[in-house]
């Protein structure tokens, strides 16, 4: 397994009239070939902006800085837009949350699929069309040849998301970023799309970053998890570790909020995390979760809490000693 993407110290700033908004603060992670990394967190935690920042597709007002964004041997912080465009859709592809609006209504899906390949490969249109048909069949679309002539509005949401996935795969990318790919879909379709993504990842030997707020999704497909809160990664680990022994109080809180089959009794109240996400404008000091944390102390507001590295895979951003954190974690997953 080789590392495909390594991100260190990623910061996204949006200048506002009354100070800078920092929706992504010092985020770091890595993904390897054949691996699925789930970035999980609530709305506004900066997970989507993180993925857009990697693709260099941030809204024009947002500013990106990073110590390191290394993709497949290329330093993405140092290359020109022209070279980045050569990578996008080619070696690194992205799928978005809204399949209903992510396809251009004016062109057939065939045109939009072929275009993704014709841009990066010197192939004839017929070859691109063949590839499009092949991939549409791969993503489970029947009568693919006829589908090419259809327009997006003739397709259902689930079909459109399949088209988006096929489009991402046109050039055989090394990394596929899926930003909440199932959020806008019916629950039954969600499972199919997740299953599809997982099998395609194996078949095409890609690395995959799956952005989601849905812990159920994480449990189903993740190899490794990065939990984000208020623009920071607060915990990383293998999916197994994070689910069985969450270390960060936020992760513990999140796991209390979801029903666990076989453990949560009918009619039992689920947990919630009281309080609000902190304001991300201006300079921040201390742990950003402290005002909602069950275990917060004076110290939490006084120092900048850094990630504690526990073993090669596991880290968490909290001042609690690992033994104490783990004990709380076990309590949380039992409750």
């Amino acid at each position: 397994m080789s590392t495909v993407l390594e991100v260190q110290g990623l910061v996204v700033r949006i200048p506002l009239t009354f100070g800078d908004l920092s929706p992504v603060r010092n985020v770091g992670f890595s993904v390897s070939t054949g691996e699925t990394l789930c970035i999980v967190g609530e709305s506004g935690c900066g997970k989507s902006l993180t993925s857009l920042a990697i693709m260099d597709l941030l809204p024009s007002r947002a500013r990106r800085t990073a110590n390191r964004i290394s993709f497949d041997g290329v330093d993405l912080t140092a290359i020109r837009e022209r070279d980045m465009a050569d990578i996008r859709g080619n070696r690194m592809a992205m799928i978005f949350q809204e399949p209903m609006t992510s396809l251009n209504p004016a062109y057939t899906i065939g045109n939009q699929l072929e275009e993704a390949m014709l841009r990066h490969r010197k192939v004839a249109r017929s070859a691109a069309r063949e590839r499009a048909v092949y991939l549409l069949e791969k993503v489970g679309i029947t009568a693919a040849g006829q589908r090419l002539k259809q327009y997006p509005h003739q397709l259902s949401g689930g079909l459109r998301q399949r088209v988006m996935i096929a489009m991402g795969l046109m050039c055989g990318p090394k990394l596929l970023i899926a930003d909440e790919p199932t959020t806008a879909l019916d629950v039954t379709i969600q499972a199919e799309i997740l299953h599809l993504l997982a099998s395609l990842k194996r078949e095409f030997d890609m690395a995959m970053i799956l952005i989601t707020h849905d812990l159920g999704v994480v449990a189903r497909v993740a190899d490794r998890v990065a939990v984000m809160y208020a623009g920071q990664v607060v915990e990383t680990g293998t999916a197994k570790d994070v689910f069985s022994r969450p270390l960060h109080p936020y992760t513990q809180g999140l796991l209390r909020c979801v029903p666990i089959p076989g453990r949560t009794k009918p009619g039992e109240h689920l947990g919630s995390i009281p309080g609000l996400v902190p304001n991300l404008i201006g300079e921040m000091k201390g742990c950003s979760f402290r005002n909602r944390c069950l275990h917060a102390s004076v110290e939490c507001g006084a120092i900048d809490v850094t990630l504690q590295q526990i073993g090669p895979e596991i880290s968490y951003r909290c001042i609690l000693p690992v033994a104490v954190a783990a004990a709380y974690g076990l309590e949380a997953t039992k409750a």
């Binding site: 465009a85 996008r88 992510s102 251009n104 489009m167």
Partner: peptide, 15 residues
């Protein structure tokens, strides 16, 4: 500002 323009850019298309 629409999503499909972001898709087009994500494909690496020329501006």
């Amino acid at each position: 500002a629409s999503d499909y323009i972001r898709t087009a850019r994500a494909k690496g298309l020329r501006s």
